[in-house]
Each structure stands twice: as C-alpha cells, then as structure tokens.
Design a protein around this nucleic acid. Structure first.
Length: 214
DNA sequence: GCTCAGATCATCT
DNA sequence: GATGATCTGAGCG
C-alpha cells in the first residue's frame, strides 16, 4: 500500500534521493537469518551526463536495470570478484542510481560476520560497496529485484535526514575525462564511523613528486 | 600507523 | 584485448 508512495519518493534526481536513502534500512531475507543494514554512505550516478557512470555511453545489457523504474536493485560484478549494489532512482528511462557505499549492520550481525569471514571489527562489515553487498548476501540474482518486495525490504525514514547531518564530497574510485571533483556526488552521514575513508581517485599511478616517472 | 601491488572476470570496443 | 563505481594482504616505519 504505502509501497507505491515509497517507490515514488525515489523517483526524483539521485542528488535528492540520496538524502532519503541515508538512514534508511535495507534488509535481505534469503531464508536464513535476515540481515539488515542502515545505509550511511551513498554515491550518486547521473546517467548520461555523468562520465563516471556505467550508463554514460548508453544503454547496454548490463546497465539495463538502471534505465528502469525507481526502487529496483542494480547489481553488477566488478574486478572479477566483487559485487556492488545500487538502488535505482529517478524517473523511468533516466539512468540514475545510488551506489550503496557503506552502512551499519543493524540486524543479523552474526550472519553478516560469517559471510564476511569474521573481520576484526564490526565496523568493517559493511564499509565499502563490495563489502556491504557481501554482508547482505547480494549477488547477481538480485539484479533488477524490487527493493520493496521479498526477499528485499527497504525502509525509508519518515523524513529525510536534516541537511546539516549530511556531508558531501568527491566520489571515490571514479576517474575519467574532465573529472571527478566536478561531481561532488558522494553523500554520507556526518560523523559515522562506518563511512569509508576518503581516498582521492588516482589515475593509475601516483604522479611522483620527483621526476623519475618510470 | 601507512602505502603499494596483485587478484580475476564480465562487459564493452 | 583492455578496463573497471574494489578489497585484501604484505611489508615497512
């Protein structure tokens, strides 16, 4: 019922939907112990105007989900070993989405620990997009899944978090022509210990201070 | 505490 | 054939 209005709340530009997602709780119930994550960090991808987006060059089989209606999950496999999860937002036909970068495990901690092979601290359970996906047990089968229907459940906060509790900055790991700092589309909850540490996107090799650029 | 290099495969040119 | 919205482990201070 509220399902429908919840979905429509996501049908706005990613830069706005980001504040809805921050503080929301995503649950994945695969039949075992459900695991819930409170989202603390997201990254906006604005489709065809965004050089860092998978959708920049147009619609393909892989990013097809992002072009669809809001409220679905776009899952992709990268670097040969990691899954990343996005929540599609914006209007149908606009390839905008929000990458779930980090979160705090608020339910099913033990299951999350097992999936992550028992990291040293719970803060590491979902710090980083691939870790978050792993902790939740997300895989490619969930690509295109509805976040408001089983086995997923997304609970948006009644009201967006106050603007003064949200920080924004350059995106991580995004390189490209012209840039990354021009698009400060990474959002996180100020002061959250689970937020991944800022790391500037480096081309490939660090420009050595000296001259011996090998 | 920090920095660096490697792993590994689906997708696109 | 090259690249990538990354993570992890090892090594060093």
């Amino acid at each position: 019922m509220e399902d429908k209005s919840e979905r429509s709340r996501l049908a706005v530009p990613a830069t706005e939907a980001a504040r809805l997602l921050l503080g929301s709780v995503l649950t994945h119930d695969d039949g075992g112990e459900p695991v819930s994550v409170r989202v603390t960090e997201v990254e906006a991808y604005m489709g065809d105007v965004d050089p860092g987006s998978h959708a920049f060059r147009g619609r393909t089989a892989r990013n097809n989900t992002m072009f669809g209606p809001a409220g679905h999950l776009y899952v992709y496999f990268t670097y040969g070993m990691h899954y990343c999860a996005n929540v599609v937002c914006g209007e149908d036909g606009h390839a905008t989405g929000l990458l779930l970068r980090a979160g705090e495990i608020v339910g099913g901690v033990e299951t999350a620990r097992e999936r992550r092979n028992n990291p040293r601290t719970d803060l590491d359970l979902a710090r980083g997009p691939a870790r978050l996906a792993q902790a939740l047990g997300i895989n490619r089968d969930l690509d295109g899944a509805d976040v408001f229907a089983a086995p997923l459940r997304l609970e948006l906060p009644a009201e967006p978090v106050p603007a003064d509790e949200v920080s924004s900055g350059p995106r991580v790991g995004v390189s490209g022509p012209g840039g990354t700092v021009e698009y400060p589309w990474r959002y996180w909850l100020t002061g959250e210990p689970t937020v991944s540490k800022y790391r500037p996107a480096q081309p490939k090799r660090r420009p050595a201070a000296g001259a011996t650029a090998r």
